[in-house]
């Protein structure tokens, strides 16, 4: 099965996939803790819609999707911070609304069902040569920004009122999280699929939080889980000719079950 690594498209998928997995694992911990688990779902549907428009208009999908999704992401975080529409319903509104618009637009043009399928469930073939540079550049930027602002992102996630009262620009860091999340979602959704991308955000974070107790260890473990799961998922999908997104998510599910078991065993051993 190692011959899979002789295909350039697999290498491309591997490189972009690992970077995106890292980004989503890091941001995922913050999003899960901030109770924004489903934001990935909402944003990926917005990305779907933006890409549908781009496909119909013959524009480059990434260049359309990234700014649109960043705007949607900021809007979602803003909406739930200060309005009557609460977080979960705001995400549901944006998510389903955008999906409907996307499907409607794409149906205007016939013969692009494959594109719908690819965007919904992802495809390794989605990463073209020209996309690789942009994807690698953007995901490295996300990683760099996350590392540089790690302490501040922690403070804002753990206790926003305290951060704001002591002079940390919480609004800016929330915005930063929103922008980084948006970029990660757009980069990841074409491989994993709009329907499954939020699992990349949620699973590694949930798994590592079961076992680890400090924020730094949770972040590190989450990153490792995410990369390992992506790599394994990609191999599985090649072996069984299964969709990449689904394979990666299933591996993540297995890891989550294992971590739950570890947590359970540990709690019970302590008791006895």
């Amino acid at each position: 099965m190692w011959e899979m690594f002789s295909y350039p498209f697999i290498i491309r998928a591997l490189v972009v996939g690992i970077l995106v997995s890292l980004c989503s694992a890091l941001l995922g911990v913050n999003l899960v803790l901030k109770r924004y688990s489903m934001i990935g779902d909402g944003l990926s549907h917005v990305a779907f819609s933006a890409m549908a428009v781009a496909t119909v208009m013959n524009w480059a999908p990434l260049w359309v999707a990234i700014p649109v999704v960043i705007a949607a992401s900021i809007l979602l975080l803003r909406l739930s911070a200060n309005s009557r529409i609460k977080g979960d319903s705001a995400i549901a509104l944006v998510s389903t609304g955008a999906l409907a618009v996307g499907v409607f637009i794409i149906s205007m043009k016939s013969g692009i069902n494959t594109d719908i399928n690819n965007y919904m469930f992802g495809s390794v073939l989605a990463i073209s040569k020209s996309d690789v540079a942009l994807s690698v550049g953007l995901s490295l930027a996300v990683l760099a920004l996350y590392v540089v602002f790690y302490n501040k992102i922690f403070a804002v996630t753990f206790d926003e009122p305290f951060a704001r009262a002591t002079g940390i620009r919480a609004g800016f860091y929330n915005m930063l999280i929103a922008v980084l999340t948006a970029v990660t979602i757009v980069l990841g959704m074409r491989m994993i699929g709009a329907l499954l991308i939020s699992s990349l955000i949620i699973f590694p974070a949930m798994s590592s939080m079961r076992v680890f107790k400090s924020f730094r260890n949770v972040i590190i473990c989450s990153a490792v889980i995410s990369v390992v799961c992506f790599f394994t998922g990609l191999m599985v999908s090649y072996q069984y000719s299964a969709p990449t997104g689904a394979s990666v998510v299933i591996i993540n599910l297995v890891v989550f079950a294992v971590f739950c078991a570890v947590d359970w065993v540990r709690a019970n051993v302590k008791h006895n």
Partner: peptide, 24 residues
């Protein structure tokens, strides 16, 4: 501040929380 619901299941060590006060 008053404690928030988020903090009840937040994985963070005591040292990490105390250090975050130094950020300003």
């Amino acid at each position: 501040p008053q404690q928030t619901a988020i903090q009840r299941d937040f994985p963070a060590s005591v040292r990490e929380v105390v250090l975050s006060g130094c950020l300003n």
